[in-house]
Amino acid sequence: MAHAFKVRIDEVRVPAPDHAELIVHSGELIKARPGQFCHVLTPGMLRRPISFSRIDRARERVGLLVQVVGSGTRWMAERQAGEWLDVLGPLGRGFDPPEGERPWLLVGGGVGIPPIFAALEAWGAQRTSSLEVVLGARFKDYLIMTDDFRRMAVEPALATDDGSAGHRGTVVPLVEEWVSQHPQGQLMACGPTPMLAAVSRAAASLAGPVQLALEQRMGCGIGACLACVVPAEPVGPEGPRYRRVCTDGPVFRREELVF
């Protein structure tokens, strides 16, 4: 029977101001696919769904990277190596592996960058065609994990809202440009919903799969409470139907969603 379990924090990294990456040891969580998440117990009334920033099967370690946005993520960021987390997981529908022959674009925005890195780490070595990475954030310090991408021999194209690093503005023009050059391509993205909506529009003409990993405030994490829904197809007379990020997602195909 599945159950909540405890995992030991091996190491705490600080990838940016107001961010923390907890490297936890777990033979269970390394079974995760990039884009899946685990549901972390915090002192509040709800667990926090955190996607995996890295899945190291050899060393049985996964990364849980959070930005401090409220009480739960603050509590997580204050943890120390040697402490334990209570988790449920891995949960949800992750990314499908890339199709080998198609050009592949990975797009990450802010604290949506971690699952994008996990996808690159999992599948980047097997690629047979071109791969590019576009990362965006509000400003330079929030462009997390760029060194991890470089360590994988990938130089990400960067965009910041204030122009403090890379292109000034959002990732969207960079995505549009790539799409026009790679009509047969495929795309994976994770980031704030407005970014995903714009990426989804920009990628509408791509021949390959467009996979988008969504975020939503979540309750149970296992499909029972119907809290973490997002608007999805089909759109009826009353509007879109609502689907669960926790079990129908977090990764959806662009054609499944309504922004």
Partner: peptide, 23 residues
């Protein structure tokens, strides 16, 4: 029933506010 628009949950001190809308 479709239920209510998200967000549907919000944490409060020792409590949980929900607005699922009986989807």
């Amino acid at each position: 029933w479709r239920g209510n628009p998200p967000p549907r949950v919000w944490e409060t001190p020792a409590g949980l506010l929900n607005s699922i809308g009986l989807q």
